[in-house]
């Protein structure tokens, strides 16, 4: 089994940062959804807030890591050169849509994730226990979290499919 230098960085981009973001979403969403005054003791709220703050901060860091690495390190390998993955996709009408639609959309849409995830982390740190008793605020925070997840999921799906079609090696 051998991975090239570029494949290692692609792995960090898609699996470590991107995969970490998507996986941690489930935990943060459950903690945030369960953060209700009427269902928890004061100690339970404190525990939920702690995990919410840690999880959302980790998600925001993972989202920034994913898009910065993807844009500034992986993407040049994808687009530059006559033998690049982009050139390979554009060489056939059967595959050109993976670049002209898939990559074009993914590379921009993915940036919504760090903006929203950072906002969620800020709300978790700023409001803390108030999220447990303010239902509207909690639902709004959850909507932002789902938005970040949705953007990241679409980007990850296209990333995986494009890599399968024309990998960065």
């Amino acid at each position: 089994m051998h991975l090239t230098y570029r494949e290692w960085w692609s792995l960090v981009h898609g699996f470590v940062f991107g995969g970490g973001f998507l996986l941690s979403f489930a935990g943060v969403a459950i903690v945030l959804y369960g953060l209700r005054r009427q269902d928890l003791t004061d100690e339970g709220i404190a525990q939920h807030v702690l995990w919410l703050r840690l999880g959302s901060a980790a998600m925001a860091a993972a989202a920034w890591g994913t898009v910065i690495l993807g844009t500034w390190v992986i993407y040049p390998w994808y687009r530059v050169g006559s033998a690049s993955p982009k050139a390979g996709l554009l060489s056939s009408a059967q595959t050109s849509g993976w670049n002209s639609f898939g990559m074009e959309w993914k590379q921009h849409l993915a940036w919504l994730a760090p903006f929203l995830a950072t906002t969620v982390a800020f709300l978790a740190f700023y409001y803390g226990p108030r999220l447990a008793r303010d239902q509207r605020l909690r639902r709004f925070t959850l909507a932002l979290l789902v938005g970040a997840f949705g953007a990241a999921s679409i980007a990850a799906l296209f990333g995986a499919l494009i890599t399968k079609m024309s990998p960065v090696v």
């Binding site: 209700r36 009427q38 903006f115 950072t118 906002t119 700023y126 409001y127 108030r130 008793r133």
Partner: peptide, 22 residues
Amino acid sequence: ETITRNSSEKPNGPAVAAILAA
């Protein structure tokens, strides 16, 4: 569930700023 708020709570301004900035 009802929204309860007291005068010691933080204002929404900084949070609103973060949301709108994103």
